[in-house]
Every structure is written in structure tokens, then in C-alpha cells.
Amino acid sequence: MLTAVLVMALGALVLGAALGYAAVRFRVEGDPLVEKIDAILPQTQCGQCGFPGCKPYAQAIAKGEADINQCPPGGEEGIRKLADLLGREVKPLSAEHGVEKAKSLAVIDENLCIGCTLCIQACPVDAIVGAAKQMHTIIAAQCTGCELCVPPCPVNCIDMQPIAETVETWKWKYPVVDIRPATARAA
């Protein structure tokens, strides 16, 4: 009887210690759901969703404080992915947060730039180089096309230009079945 109790107690202690150790050792930092949502978001950091960046929006979605259809750069596909992840219904993009646009790139007209550094302060991804009273320029490879640099510019020298397709970025189109009008057969 005593042996049985001791064996069970020992087993409980050992297993408890193992579980306790595992809980400390394999502790998950942060909320994995936020990370997963953040991975789907386009990282434009444009704030069109009403949150100051993609991560805060991801946190709000995870907490249920924001809907999944507030991200215009992510577009319909982003909404579909979020719906898949969270097991929610797909809905159209909320109109108050903006419309889906082709990805574009900010371009500074270097003749007009007065070097005020306001756009540098606005850029969320440090994609603008320049200094006070020196001409600024945009690092195209880092620009996310968030348009946050456009309103602060006092001389309106920043223009959003759609990204042109090149041979490298060109995509094969979805095969379309050629439907010939019925008159062609009759003729």
C-alpha cells in the first residue's frame, strides 16, 4: 500500500517537474497568432487600416478589435488569406479604408526638392535618403508605396508612379478560352 502511494507520488513529482521544465524551456514568446497575421499583411506600413502600421493592425485583428477587410494594399487576396487563417467569412474590402491599387513607387522630383527632411521623417521604412537643405532621393528597392511621404511635402515634389512591368517581372497570363461569336460559324 505504502509502496504504491510512494510510486504514484514519485511519478507525479517526476512528471510535474518535466512539465514545469518544458513550460519554461519551450515558452512561446509573444502571440503566435499575431505573428501569423503579420506574415500575411503586406508590410506597407501605410496606416490605411487605421492603425499605426501592420503589426498593430495584426494585434487588433487577433484581439478581435478590427475586421479583416481594412487593408487595401493586401487587397482581396490578403483578405482571403486572413479569412483562411482565422476561419472567417471572406468579405469585400471596406470602402472607408480605401481601394486596392496597383503597387506604385514614390519618386522625388529632384529639381523641386528643397531638402526639408519632412518626407524622411514620414517614411516608415527608411527608404528616403537626404539631409537638411540637401536633395533627397528614394531607394526604390526599399519603397513600399505607402504614400505617407506625399502629404508632408511642402513643394509637392513627390509623385507616385506605377511600377512598370519588365521582362523579369512579367507573368504568364491565365489561359483564356477564346470564345468565338456564333455569327462566325454561320458565315
Binding site: P42, T44, C54, V125, Q142, W170, Y174
Partner: peptide
Amino acid sequence: RFAKSEIWARETEKEAADRAREHH
């Protein structure tokens, strides 16, 4: 070919998003 180029485009976009996240 359509599927391959779509997947490649998505991968490039994903890489760009990861870079943007890092910068931000």
C-alpha cells in the same frame, strides 16, 4: 507557366514584405 510565374511573383513580394518589416 501561369502558376509558376504567379508563385515566383508571390515569393518576390513576400521577400520584399519581409525586408520592409525589418526596416520598419
